[in-house]
């Protein structure tokens, strides 16, 4: 199916398109299907999950899916899936700050350098400033606290590196800084926490 032949705004359209694209019953790579159907990752994953819920498709291995016998029968009979997703799926965004928050929760006591090393990926570029700004805002909202002793630096005249301690571990979703409100929005509790000082 050529991208753009269906309206992704119509309930079930992407799911039906995915079902037809896999009608031959062979193994299909997720990336190739996304490209073929012109869907973004979220749209594709929602469509695939609807097929899983109906037992029309199965995961062969990470990144590869295939239709079940039921799915093949549905595809050959021309079934049109009209339903939306069953149940809400919580998707945690895979951003640098999300990975940094996860690393902070695992380590509990950390330096900016340790968090950058844990959360960075190839091609991320230098995330030192990003991490420093994020931790400073979390600190202003009371999520992390600076420890009294620093880790000594190695450069001549260095003041050393701050060591931080996680104070409020409210859950797995990374708190988000809202510049307009000068507050941290915590998706775990749904609350906005005012920052005492904003950098």
């Amino acid at each position: 199916m050529v991208a753009g032949e269906f309206d992704t705004g119509t309930l079930g359209a992407a799911t039906t398109a995915l079902l037809r694209a896999m009608a031959d019953g062979s193994d299909h790579g997720v990336m190739a299907l996304q490209e073929q159907l012109g869907l973004n990752r979220r749209q594709f994953n929602n469509a695939a999950r609807r097929l899983f819920l109906r037992s029309y498709a199965t995961i062969v291995k990470p990144g590869v899916i295939r239709l079940t016998n039921g799915g093949k029968a549905a595809a050959s009979s021309g079934e049109v899936i009209r339903g939306g997703p069953k149940g809400q799926v919580k998707i945690i965004k895979d951003t640098f700050r999300q990975r940094a928050w996860t690393a902070m929760r695992v380590r509990r006591c950390f330096t900016i350098g340790e968090i950058v090393a844990d959360a960075s990926r190839d091609g991320d570029g230098d995330q030192q400033d990003n991490a420093r700004r994020y931790v400073s805002r979390l600190s202003a909202a009371g999520y992390v606290a600076e420890m009294p002793r620093r880790v000594s630096g190695t450069a001549p005249g260095s003041n050393g590196f701050k060591r931080w301690l996680i104070r409020q571990d409210t859950g797995p979703k990374a708190p988000v800084f809202r510049e307009s409100a000068c507050a941290i929005h915590d998706p775990n509790t749904g609350e906005d926490v005012a920052c005492k000082t904003a950098s």
């Binding site: 990336m31 695939a48 990470p62 149940g87």
Partner: peptide, 23 residues
């Protein structure tokens, strides 16, 4: 189980590994 299953499916669709770590 339901929540873990949806996370595992999401990871599998993205071609990544998903697990449970008990430290």
């Amino acid at each position: 189980i339901q929540e873990l299953q949806s996370r595992a499916e999401e990871a599998a669709l993205n071609g990544t590994t998903f697990g449970l770590v008990i430290d």
